[in-house]
Amino acid sequence: MAKERMARPRKDQNVANRRKPNRSRAGDAFIYLMLGLTALVMVYPLVFAVAASLKPLDELFRFPPRLFPSNPTFDNFADLVVTMGQSWVPFGRYLSNTVLITLIGTAGHLVIASMAAFVLAKYDFPGSKAFFRLVVVALMFSGYVTGIPNYLVLTRLGLVDTSFAVILPAFAAPIGMFLMKQFMEGIPMALIESAKMDGASEMRVFWQIVMPNVKPAWLTLIIFSVQGLWNSKASTVIYSEARKTLTYALGQIQAGGIARTGQAAAVTVIMMLVPITIFILSESRILETMASSGIKE
């Protein structure tokens, strides 16, 4: 199974290197031109953010403005540290809150969602199809639509103003379970049957046969979960300052108006670096998982 996956990219590369017979030169040129121009448009605001974060105050308000700073400086980042130091609650607190939420939420999501995905992908039991259809519908629930009743449910459970108000819903995020289930369908049933023939319990099959075989999906699930939790503001379910998240605190700095333009750009750069770096490091694994993401009818 693992070998099969390893072999695929190589074969793919051979095909890609050979020129396909039905491709016109003009078409190729058109595609490269379109891609190049659009890539510039896509990347410009991000480059702009990085450039703005490196500009000293006078250059931020220079007329006419320039894209790149003439005297790049890390002053904005230094100012940001100063502003952080003045916050009411020690700034490390926000960071540790977010890290904690992200770590626990992601770990729990990985285990709980994978267990559910395993039985939904590999067994046919009464209610399994209906349950999965419900999950697909739930892909469309944005946090806003369920936000208010979710708050009421959390109140009744006594979870409001604790980190669990963010962590527990994250455990059952439908997107991670969905992707995991679609990926696990690719595991041959024979592998599971043979392990059971040798007397392995369902739990052992899950941990020692299934999970090691879906490592790319792990990574994808982890990344979607980390992105969601790292960026979670949670401002409606957590109101004690000492339990608030990093995104919330940075958002407050960002909202500081014109005088904090430089610091706001610095915040933007810090916040976008984490998810983009994670994505670059795990791109090939994520794409491998997404290849099975389709909704079959």
Binding site: F118, S128, A138, F141, T146, L157, A172, P174, F206
Partner: peptide
């Protein structure tokens, strides 16, 4: 196997 996910999913979604 489905229970933990199902319980949380039904409660929070």
């Amino acid at each position: 196997f489905l229970l933990p996910f199902a319980a949380l999913f039904l409660t929070f979604y």
